[in-house]
Design a protein around this nucleic acid. Structure first.
Length: 593
RNA sequence: GCGCCCGUAGCUCAGCCGGAUAGAGCACCGGUUUCCUAAACCGGGGGUCGCAGGUUCGAGUCCUGCCGGGCGCGCCA
């Protein structure tokens, strides 16, 4: 019976308890109770049970009754349904309800959870989602500023894809502004051979062009010719895009992000739509001419949004309006997510509000698309100012990645040199690929593991440490689990369900089982909140729960076959959750390191 | 000047639409251990949650004001 109940929720006890208590609330309080959220939470303190129901106290206030007494009646109403999976619930404190799962129910839930999907059912909503990420500029090297947008965006995309969603990753390349015209102008002045151009040459031309802004008028002329479709200029323009993107794709490859040419929706993609954007705002009476420019005003702030300059040119705001419209109306995205630097908060607030004013957030099905900016903080150097080289320039991304990889590879080789090390027999090539996985994992995890809006100091020593809440620590935990299967004579990806049921007896086993069952909820939570650090925190806690389990519960030497098989299955599912979680973070999980 | 964000242990950070005694890692101090075990383990000290009010049965969490730091603010992106 417990198995039947649990299987309806793919082994997610929180969902199951929510159903049970929602029913009980309804029985006791009618519709008011049924509509309320029971607020089922995992217990923070084992002494108060495995799960607690916190929703009673709020309801008692509304119903003007004694919360403890109400909790008692709800426990009574839930008792029948609860009996299959839990010990009798207890009322505690001012009106908490504490629930302790029966160990057979826990075992049954784990069994349901033990599938390739790891308990994560696809979302009922199948509409696509658009994520704006990366946003590199043509003629510039990728630098640390693009790192965060790229890896955060890729992670959010992976999480949502894991929830069964179609995600349109949109790389909004900066390929069409005045700066590009300036670079083109600079290169023509130099009579540069565009077929032999390196990215360093381009970068130099970009900086030279920026320095020489006395030529702004000539650059504007160049821009106008480019926008009018001058053949020669367009040809050169495509060449500098090629040079830039070749290096960008190399960085994507090294970083292991799922981005390629198919994700490119550069500014130029929208160039034929910009006139219409301005026209429609004017026609709707939402835009006005002011000092020669065309602006959108908002009722609640002084700052207007300029959508066309007084010289007739368009701005990034115009392009962003066109892009949101495209993503909602043509891609059908019910969420349009921008993973962009926190400094652009005001900009996105204005753009999104303008979209709402004109109604371009309306989907074909009548719903309103959610427009959301995911703001992230800056990467700082040791001096706590934004990371720059000594000469004051942006640090190229490749330099950062290579340093991390070098450090990690050195560490891996050092460990492999020890004769009885598990990596001692690996080829140099394999060790190098492990080093790459650890170096990249360290950088990504450091970027994703704390609240995104906070600035953080780029500190390789801390990132690459094998202790604490770091990428290498999680990878290490995974590799250690892997080593058990070899000793047990099992393959890593073998289906171990044939070994028989889970047996949950020891406290460390129970803690581990409860941690495992939280996984689907955590993934859904990240998809909803857009806060990847919650997944990092979870993986760290799971790794710790596993560590305590492994310390306290013999696996290979467990007494009795049933217990040994159950523990092997626990190891097996821990390995898969760690690997799956790391994959959602875009981090490789080597089996040895 | 206006606006936004941040302020939790010595350091780096968690704290799940307000919920029980505010947690973890690193560092520090004390103890245990050579195990199926690739990061050893257990315990301890350390906090007026920036400050002051307010709402609430209950506030690190919500509201108001202030302090400190960061960022943004009409034709760059």
């Amino acid at each position: 019976m417990a198995t039947d109940q649990a299987s309806r929720t793919s082994g997610d006890p929180v969902a199951l308890l929510e159903t049970i208590f929602r029913d009980a609330f309804g029985t006791v309080l009618g519709d008011a109770g049924r509509d309320a959220d029971p607020l089922v939470r995992t217990g923070r303190n084992p002494q108060f049970g495995d799960y607690q129901v916190n929703g009673v106290m709020g309801l008692a206030k509304q119903a003007r009754t004694n919360p403890r007494e109400l909790a008692g009646r709800i426990v009574e109403a839930a008792a029948g349904a609860l009996d299959a999976i839990a010990e009798p619930a207890e009322v505690a404190g001012p009106g908490f309800i504490n629930v302790r799962l029966k160990s057979e129910a826990l075992a049954a839930m784990l069994d349901d959870f033990d599938t390739p999907r790891l308990g994560l059912a696809p979302d009922a909503d199948t509409r696509p989602i658009a994520i704006d990420l990366c946003g590199v500029n043509i003629a510039k090297q990728m630098h640390v500023g693009h790192l965060r947008s790229t890896i955060i965006g890729d992670t959010l995309a992976r999480v949502m894809e894991r929830c069964g969603r179609t995600v349109h990753r949109q790389n909004h390349l900066g390929d069409w502004g005045l700066t590009i015209a300036m670079v083109l102008q600079e290169l023509r002045d130099r009579k540069a051979d565009l077929d032999a151009l390196s990215l360093d040459d381009l970068d130099a031309a970009y900086r030279a062009a920026q320095a020489a802004n006395d030529d702004a008028d000539r650059a504007k002329q160049t821009l106008i010719r480019l926008q009018q479709g001058d053949d020669e200029l367009l040809r050169d323009w495509r060449k500098i895009i090629d040079v830039t993107m070749r290096a960008v794709y190399e960085s994507f490859d090294l970083l292991g992000v799922r981005l390629g040419p198919e994700n490119n929706r550069p500014e130029s993609f929208y160039r034929d739509r910009l006139d219409a954007v301005v026209e429609e705002f004017l026609a709707a009476g939402l835009a006005e001419t002011d000092q020669g420019a065309i602006i959108v005003r908002f009722p609640d702030r002084k700052r207007p949004l300029i959508i066309r300059k007084s010289d007739g040119g368009f701005l990034y705001s115009t392009t962003d309006l066109a892009a949101v419209k495209y993503r909602v109306q043509e891609l059908g995205a019910c969420r349009v997510i921008y993973v962009v630097d926190a400094r652009q908060r005001d900009h996105f607030r204005d753009v999104f509000d303008a979209i709402r004013l004109i109604g371009w957030d309306r989907l074909a099905d009548g719903d309103t698309a959610q427009l959301v900016h995911v703001p992230f903080g800056s990467v700082l150097g040791a001096d706590r100012t934004p990371l720059k080289t000594r000469s004051g320039e942006n640090v190229p991304l490749s330099a950062l990645l290579n340093e991390a990889i070098d450090r990690a590879t050195t560490e891996v080789r050092k460990r492999a040199a020890v004769p009885d090390s598990p990596t001692h027999d690996l080829s140099d090539e394999t060790l190098a690929s492990i080093g790459r996985a650890i170096g990249i994992g360290a950088i990504k995890y450091a970027d994703l593991s704390s609240d995104l809006v906070r600035d953080y100091v780029f500190n390789l020593d801390r990132m690459i440490a094998f202790e604490g809440n770091t990428g290498p620590y999680i990878q290490y935990a995974h590799a250690r689990v892997c080593s058990i299967f070899g000793k047990a004579g099992l393959e890593l990806d073998e289906d171990l369900r044939r070994l028989g049921p889970y047996v949950i007896r020891e406290p460390a086993e129970k803690t581990l089982a409860l941690a495992l069952l939280r996984y689907p909820g955590v993934v859904r939570d990240v998809a909803e909140s857009l806060e990847p650090h919650r997944l990092c925190t979870y993986l760290f806690e799971l790794a710790n729960a596993y560590s305590a389990f492994y310390e306290n519960c013999p696996v290979l030497k467990a007494e009795g076959e049933a217990r040994r098989h159950s523990r092997l299955r626990l190891c097996h599912i821990v390995r898969r959750v760690l690997a799956d979680g790391l994959d959602l973070l875009g981090i490789d999980a080597p089996t040895r390191m």
